[in-house]
C-alpha cells in the first residue's frame, strides 16, 4: 500500500471493458492505457458514448474491467484479491467524487454532509463535524455550514460537495461534469479551486467535461473515441 514519488497515482494498462455478448456486445473501452501523476488535473473529453463515463467508473472502482490492469496510489486493483467491501473502503479512503449536480444528501446540513464521510472512515461525530467545519472554511462556504442542500445555491452546493470529496484527504479526485450546472464565472472559480487542491494535497484530478470554457484549466486532456484513447497531452 501507499505510493512513491516515482509511481503515477493512476496507472492503467490495456484496460478493456465491454457490455453484452455476441451481436449485442458493445466495446466501451478498448485497451486504454494512461498514467496520471500527483498534482495533475486532467480532462476526459469525447462525444457521447465514447466511453468517458465507463473509464471514470473503472478508475473509481465501480466497474471491473474485462482485461488489463490498473494501479491506484500504488495498489493494483482487480487482481482477484479485492472484495466489493474492499473496493468500497478503497473509494472511501483514496477517492473523492464530485458530481455534475452536487448530490448532497438532502436530509443532512452542509457540515454533516461533509462529516458523514469522516464518520464512515472512523472519526467520532464531534471530531468529524469540527474537521468538516474547517474544510467548509477552507472552501469559503463556512457561512452556509448549517444550511440544508436545498437552500444552497449551485456554487455553494458544489463547494460543499468538493469539501465532502476532500474530507478524507483522498489522493484521487474524480469529477463528473463538475461545472455543468454552473455559470462561467462560478465554473472558473471551481476549476481554480480544484487546481489549487491538486497542488496543495498532491492529488490527481480526473474530470469528465464538455465545458469548453474551462479547457484551459487542465494540465492534459485525454480524448476518447469509440472506447479508444487519443492522448494529446496538452500541458
Amino acid at each position: 500500500m501507499g505510493s512513491s514519488a516515482a509511481t503515477p497515482l493512476i496507472e492503467l494498462r490495456d484496460v478493456s471493458k465491454h457490455f453484452g455478448e455476441g451481436e449485442a456486445r458493445v466495446d466501451a473501452l478498448k485497451e486504454v492505457s494512461l498514467s496520471i501523476s500527483a498534482g495533475e488535473v486532467v480532462a476526459l473529453l469525447g462525444p457521447s458514448g465514447s466511453g468517458k463515463t465507463t473509464l471514470l467508473n473503472v478508475i473509481g472502482c465501480i466497474l471491473e474491467p474485462a482485461s488489463g490492469w490498473m494501479r491506484l496510489d500504488g495498489d493494483v486493483v482487480y487482481d482477484n484479491r479485492w472484495l466489493r467491501s474492499d473496493l468500497r473502503r478503497l473509494r472511501l479512503d483514496k477517492i473523492g467524487f464530485i458530481f455534475q449536480f452536487h448530490n448532497l444528501l438532502p436530509f443532512l446540513d452542509a457540515t454533516d454532509n461533509v462529516a458523514l464521510v469522516l464518520e464512515l472512515a472512523g472519526a467520532e461525530h464531534a471530531e468529524a463535524r469540527r474537521r468538516a467545519a474547517a474544510l467548509l472554511e477552507y472552501l469559503e462556504v463556512a457561512h452556509r455550514r448549517n444550511a440544508m442542500p436545498s437552500h444552497l445555491s449551485g456554487g455553494e452546493g458544489q463547494r460543499v460537495a468538493i469539501a465532502r470529496a476532500l474530507a478524507n484527504r483522498p489522493r484521487i479526485i474524480l469529477a463528473d461534469e463538475p461545472t455543468a450546472a454552473l455559470d462561467s464565472k462560478r465554473a472558473g472559480i471551481v476549476m481554480d479551486l480544484l487546481r489549487k487542491l491538486a497542488r496543495e494535497q498532491d492529488a490527481a484530478i480526473v474530470a469528465v467535461t464538455h465545458d469548453e470554457k474551462i479547457f484551459d484549466r487542465f494540465d492534459r486532456i485525454f480524448h476518447l473515441r469509440d472506447g479508444r484513447l487519443d492522448d494529446k497531452g496538452e500541458d
Partner: peptide, 16 residues
Amino acid sequence: LKQIATLKLIGAPDRT
C-alpha cells in the same frame, strides 16, 4: 435510490 447510490459511491458500507 439516488441517495443510496451516492452513499455507496462515497464508500458507505452496506450496514449503513
